[in-house]
Each structure stands twice: as C-alpha cells, then as structure tokens.
Computed example of a mutant assay.
Amino acid sequence: MHTMWKGNISFGLVSIPVKLHAATEDKDIKLRSLHKECHTPIKYEKICPVCEKELEVEEIVKGYEITKGKFVVLEENELADLKKISEERAVELIDFIKLEEIDPIYFERSYYLSPNTGGTKAYGLLRKALVESGKAGVAKIVMRSKERLAIIRVFEHTLLMETIHFPDEVRKAADVPGVPTDDQITKRELDTAILLIDQLTSPFEPEKYKDEYRTKLLELIESKQTGEKVVTPIEKEPAANVTDLMAALQASIDKTRPKQKKAAPRKKTAAKKKIVE
C-alpha cells in the first residue's frame, strides 16, 4: 500500500511516528475527450484570452477575486510563509470524543495509519486506549498545504484517520429552499411508512451493493475491444396506478413484502367405494 505522508501523532507527551495510506480508492472509469475525426486526445491549453497566447507555468500566479474582475495577487513566497509546514510534520490530538457525536455530514476522506520505524509500541498503546475508552481523537494535520481537522479511531484493528470539514465549511440546512416547516401527515400514513421501513430494514452488508453503471460500462468497453455488438434492452417496470400518498405506501409494502411459500399440495384420498345395495 502506497505511503502518501510520514509524520508523528502527538499524544500528550507521547510521539508516535506513523505513515499515512489512502483507505479508499476512486474506481470511476476515466473517459478522455477525442477528436471525432482522427481520435486524437484533445488538449486543454492554458491560454490568456486578452493576450491570446498559451502561457508557461512560470507566467501564472495565484489570485483571489475580491469583486467581479478584480483580484489580489499572491506571490509564491508569501503563500509559503503562511503554510507553516515544518520538517517535522505532526498530527496533534487535541480532544477525545464519542464518535456518535459527529454527524456524517462532516466526514470527508479516510486514511489508514501504520506505525513508522520505532512507533509500533506507542501505536499499539493508542489503539488499545481508544478501544478501551470507546473514544475517538480529534486532531489537526497539515496536508497538501491546507490545515485540516481529523478524527482518529480504530477500524478493524488499524488506526484510521478521517478528515472532516470545519464547521464553517458545512452549509446551513436552514438555508435550503422549499423545506416544509409543518408535517401534515396522518397517523395512518406515518404508521404505514414505518411499516415499510421495517420491511426494508436489514443488517448493513456493504458487499451486497455494487456499482452497476461501472460494471455495465466496463462490459461495453470490453465488447468494443473484441468487436462484439451488444444491445441491452431497457426493462421498464409497469407503472403503478397510484393516486395518493397512502396508496403509494401500500403499493410499496405489497411490493417489498416477503413472498409466502406455496403450501404443499394435499395428497389425493382414495375414492370412496360405492355402496352396492
């Protein structure tokens, strides 16, 4: 597993040398834009629309737009002074919390932490302490020229660091337009909705969820490579004749209700003998 960062976890006076590894991977299929006529990949050039010329890297500077069309230019050395990245980079644990106190909206990306040279025992100590206490650590880390907030917890016997958004990076739910303030729901509708939820409730098994679009796209690419022509008909579900919310809920329950096993056919009894007078 590729090491993408090396540093130390600062745990009080304890310093734990660690290595950082991406815990997830992007499996999106990257498609290039080609010229339709000759299938040459299209270039995306950095061109100044005023000077009408392509720019070299050294001709480009960073700027912040303060008003429409007006920028404050920031030099590279000025940005470097603000980064405050020392040779000895550290993950500083500043608080310990219960993981359930964090709403999932804050979570950003996950990374595995492994012990670096000389850090095995201290790594094991922090891992065991987190498990025994049932807590997760809140930490600060500088990654890719940005200070980030993170959570350190134990996942399958490994320390996991999850970067999280700062509070001012999460937009207010109150600003979402069109959200109804009052629920005009009848008790019958609510009870039926809860029944539907109960019918669809099952233990979380991530293995059963597949990216069907990616699978189909890979099949299409493979068929193109081998020269096969594949046509997949789209199966449409028959539209339900639903006129109101209650009917929709009931139709959903009927559709998701477990099918009952057919009763075994009864054995035919021997025909009664006719009584001869």
Rank of each mutant, 00 (worst) to 15 (best):
M4R: 11
L31R: 09
P265V: 10
A240Y: 02
A173G: 07
K98E: 14
E222S: 01
R109P: 06
K84Q: 10
G227S: 01
R109G: 03
A193V: 09
E92L: 05
L217N: 00
D211S: 06
G178E: 12
C51F: 08
E88I: 02
R188V: 12
D182Y: 10
L55N: 11
E156H: 00
I234P: 00
I29P: 09
V276D: 13
R127V: 03
T226Y: 04
E58N: 15
I42M: 14
E76G: 08
Q225D: 13
P206T: 08
E56M: 07
E235W: 05
R109E: 08
D28L: 09
N8M: 06
E58Q: 15
C48Y: 14
E235M: 05
N77G: 05
G119T: 01
P203S: 12
H2I: 13
I42P: 10
H165Q: 00
L20D: 03
S86P: 01
T232K: 01
K140M: 11
T163E: 04
A129E: 01
I141E: 04
H157P: 04
S110D: 04
K224N: 07
K262N: 02
V14M: 07
K259V: 02
K46M: 13
G124M: 05
R148V: 01
P180I: 07
K121I: 02
D81G: 13
I47V: 15
V230D: 02
C48R: 14
P167F: 13
L93S: 04
